[in-house]
């Protein structure tokens, strides 16, 4: 019983950390610019496919592919922000929604064209396959890896946002863009960097997710990702990093628990949790507005 519960906790946290990596960029950029970027999932998908191509076709070792994916997807994100998104910050949010949904469809079609419509899987090193003993618990090696790497990045991110001057600039810009500008902070540049970082993390999360989910498909950013990301953002509270972390972990745990204890209702148990949480805290568990 205790072992069962601990295993559940472990799996849920591993999944939660993964969701956090993929969704945190969306939360911060939505909080900062009020830009509704529904195409955020496309960056995660791109990261997943890039990871597959690098490891499977180009023969890059898995551990080396991860930082490459982060940098590449971050660069793509920055490019899209500068060339496209920047023009829409003053537009109404319906425009954001329509525009980014359109971009998502294009990304799905593009991925189908390049990588095909069937499920693509990633080859991971042998030491990440099978089970490992961790703190006296029999756990999946890949999930342990996910929890450790993802947890370290999540902690570094939260710490960096709380303790560095750039982090303070990001928070100041989320709090009050006009005043941040008036003090000499180049809000556009802060946003571009944040957007690139968020996209890169989504890409990294996407690459890590492939093996966890058993492969990805081009429709990945439309159904699955979009819904889960938006849950993390709304439940966590717009622009709140710790909120997003809490929401992602909660979501991961709820998902794992539901799949284990009540598989029949598992597919909608998540939404039940979300509804209850939002009734309790309409602006998110750590939201400020």
């Amino acid at each position: 019983m205790a072992v069962e519960l601990l295993t559940l906790l472990f799996n849920g946290l591993a999944y939660g950390v993964l969701l956090f990596l993929m969704a945190i960029g969306l939360s911060v950029t939505m909080g900062m610019m009020n830009f509704v970027n529904l195409a955020h999932g496309a960056f995660a998908m791109l990261g997943g496919y890039l990871g597959i191509s690098l490891t499977t076709r180009a023969g890059v070792p898995f551990l080396a592919a991860l930082p490459l994916v982060f940098v590449a997807v971050g660069a793509v994100g920055a490019g899209i922000e500068v060339t496209l998104y920047r023009r829409f910050y003053r537009s109404p949010q319906l425009t954001h929604v329509l525009f980014t949904i359109g971009l998502t469809f294009m990304a799905v079609a593009g991925a189908t064209y390049v990588w095909g419509s069937q499920i693509a899987a990633m080859r991971v090193p042998d030491w990440l396959i099978g089970q490992t003993m961790f703190l006296g618990l029999q756990v999946g090696s890949y999930r342990l890896f996910l929890l450790l790497v993802g947890g370290a990045i999540a902690l570094a991110l939260v710490f960096g946002l709380e303790r560095t001057r750039f982090g303070a600039m990001v928070r100041a810009t989320v709090d009050n863009r006009r005043m941040a500008q008036s003090l000499g902070i180049d809000v556009g540049r802060v946003f571009s960097l944040t957007f690139a970082l968020g996209s890169g993390l989504a890409g990294l999360g996407g690459a890590l997710a492939v093996n966890f989910l058993g492969g990805i498909q081009p429709a990945f950013p439309l159904g699955y990702l979009l819904v889960y990301f938006l849950i993390v953002v709304t439940v966590g509270g717009l622009g709140s990093t710790l909120g997003a972390l809490a929401a992602a972990l909660l979501l991961g745990l709820a998902d794992a628990a539901a799949k284990f204890y009540a598989p029949v209702i598992a597919s909608f148990a998540i939404y039940l949790v979300m509804v209850v949480l939002l009734m309790w805290r309409p602006h998110g568990i750590l939201g400020r507005r």
Partner: peptide
């Protein structure tokens, strides 16, 4: 932001303190 860097500073009527920054961070951020 370029006007600010040239030497203009504005204390707004609503004060507009950054609420998720500490007092020290409010002073150091810019």
């Amino acid at each position: 932001h370029l006007r600010a860097r040239m030497g203009l500073a504005w204390v707004a009527q609503e004060r507009e303190i950054f609420s998720s920054l500490t007092v020290t961070e409010n002073l150091t951020v810019a």
